[in-house]
């Protein structure tokens, strides 16, 4: 009898720990911009690998729910987590993906698993300057893509650099998404108009080349993939997010264009 009690306590501790770790996995994946189907699937697979049954995972871009129990025992374990801020990072998704593959084929100790998750979560991405250079590279490429010449592309470089710098800074202070895009759109349009007037190049191409940096590509792609795999709630949520961002960019650049349009 005592032995059975002891066993139950151990199981309870284990179950609670597992539930916490599963939501941690889910939060890292959701924040990094994984599709809902992938998050649910990863959580369920890990759960199964640790011997749980009757697993239910429900994920939306803002909420995670996991519920499971172990065989021939009626005790249920749950965890609910609210997801707040998202910063897109495909590298983390990839890392978690390979970690969960490893864990599913050979379950490791939960404390070790937790440590590995923390390590992935705290991993530093590219530095801000590298991101800004990437922004400059994007603007350079897009200027040619939209049929500009070398001079347009050269003027687009500083605009792309400064736009990415502004968005990274706003991201760091967790500025509201709508105003972040509005402000960035307004800023890049003003800078493009000024630089295009000074260097006498086509201002439309410079603006378009740098506006592409703000386009909500990840939200659109995820909206499509979520809707196709049947997660309609998050599909719609992400589509609305994309539309909102597009409106914010249009509003920001529209305001500046109508103020400085005559220049």
């Amino acid at each position: 009898m005592t032995y059975r009690c002891y066993n139950q306590v151990v199981e309870k501790v284990f179950g609670n720990k597992l539930a916490k770790i599963l939501t941690k996995v889910g939060i890292i994946l959701t924040k990094s911009g994984a599709e809902v189907h992938r998050v649910e699937d990863t959580m369920e697979r890990i759960c199964k690998a640790y011997g749980a049954s009757v697993i239910d995972a429900y994920v939306t871009p803002t909420l995670l729910i996991i519920s499971f129990s172990f065989k021939d025992q009626s005790e249920l374990y749950h965890n609910i987590k609210r997801v707040y801020y998202s910063s897109y990072d495909l590298f983390k998704i990839d890392k978690i993906n390979s970690l969960s593959r490893e864990v599913c084929s050979k379950p490791i100790d939960l404390d070790l698993f937790d440590e590995l998750l923390d390590k992935i979560d705290n991993e530093k991405g590219y530095s801000t300057w590298m991101l800004c250079l990437a922004g400059a590279l994007c603007a350079f490429g897009f200027a040619f893509f939209y049929k500009g010449d070398l001079y347009d592309a050269l003027v687009a470089i500083p605009v792309g650099f400064c736009t990415k710098l502004l968005t990274s800074l706003l991201e760091k202070i967790e500025f509201p998404v709508f105003f972040k895009h509005l402000l960035s759109g307004a800023f890049l349009t003003a800078l493009s108009i000024v630089l295009a007037t000074i260097f006498k190049v086509d201002r439309d191409i410079v603006i378009i080349a740098s506006i592409m940096l703000l386009v909500p590509g990840l939200a659109i792609t995820n909206a499509i993939r979520d809707s196709v795999s049947g997660d309609l709630v998050s599909g719609i949520t992400r589509a609305i997010e994309a539309i909102f961002i597009a409106i914010a960019i249009a509003l920001g650049s529209g305001i500046v264009l109508s103020l400085l349009g005559g220049m």
Partner: peptide, 10 residues
Amino acid sequence: ASLGFGIIFD
């Protein structure tokens, strides 16, 4: 352009 976006998405 794609290279830049690849870096931005880490």
